[in-house]
């Protein structure tokens, strides 16, 4: 079995988000980049599925050379090999196009992504790759079982779940619950340095969207404190002043 995990390189979750160039560019100064937390879940499940010689896990990233520490981290966690498509990502469609182009003739049985990247949150790449490859895609799964021929997935829906059964090949985007992220051990970190990381030149793909500017949320007004002895007053304020109940 061959599993492909799509990973992205994102600002650490503690990052304070600011912009430069008249709010047209994300300010990366001093920002620590990490492996997207949801992609860690996808990677962990891929490794579990392939354990005991049942298959191999390849990770793919669309990005410039600066993303290689994140790719090495994925190798340290347990991926067998890695591919970097050598282009800065511009929008979800171009990223999906690069991944689909690479994957189309490699015979991957299962392709996994995180449910979304925590920078642009599009949650688009998995379903776009599915469409470009004309294979089923399931977005935002909480569980993935595979018996060798058929996969059973729990897809999150509002207020519950849908249980989906499907054959390979397919692509799915993983949320919490699919697996526990794995922490690389010393052997993993050592071996990551020598695992294959292929750099592949991109194909031509035109972006369909572009970000013209950014904005940070308006600052909120100062907090109004209510005494712990006057809880009923809070209810009154929520009704008469805030008008939310």
């Amino acid at each position: 079995m061959k599993v492909l995990v799509c990973i992205s390189n994102v600002p650490d979750t503690t990052t304070k988000i600011t912009f430069t160039n008249n709010n047209t560019q994300f300010n990366t100064a001093g920002v620590q980049f990490i492996l997207n937390p949801y992609d860690e879940i996808a990677l962990a499940r891929a490794i579990e599925l392939c354990e005991g010689g049942k298959g191999t896990v390849t990770v793919i990233n669309v990005g410039e050379a600066s993303t290689e520490p994140t790719i090495r981290k994925a190798l340290a966690i347990g991926a067998d090999d890695a591919v970097r498509i050598n282009i800065a990502p511009s929008d979800s469609y171009t990223v999906a196009s690069q991944i689909a182009e690479y994957a189309k003739d490699k015979g991957f049985d299962i392709i996994l992504t995180g449910r979304e990247s925590i920078d642009y949150n599009g949650a688009q790449v998995a379903a776009m790759v599915g469409e470009l490859l004309n294979i089923p895609s399931v977005s935002i799964i909480k569980k993935l079982d595979f018996d060798g021929t058929t996969a059973t997935l729990d897809r999150e829906i509002e207020g519950g779940k849908e249980v989906i059964s499907l054959p390979t090949p397919f692509i799915a985007s993983c949320a919490e619950g699919v697996a526990e992220p794995k922490i690389p051990n010393m052997r993993g970190i050592m071996s990551a340095r020598t695992k294959p990381l292929a750099v592949v030149e991109p194909v031509a793909a035109t972006a369909l969207t572009s970000i013209s500017s950014f904005e940070t949320p308006a600052p909120r007004s100062a907090v109004k404190m209510v005494s712990a002895d006057e809880v009923a007053k809070l209810v009154d304020m929520l009704h008469t002043e805030a008008r939310v109940i």
Binding site: S92, Y93, A96, G122, A123, Q124, A127, M128, S137, I140
Partner: peptide, 23 residues
């Protein structure tokens, strides 16, 4: 941009060669 919409919108966008703004 519901759970269902997230699985659907990107496929519709690719079929229509459309740019997609999510959220």
């Amino acid at each position: 941009n519901s759970f269902t919409g997230k699985g659907l919108a990107p496929r519709v966008a690719v079929k229509l060669q459309a740019g997609l703004v999510a959220g």
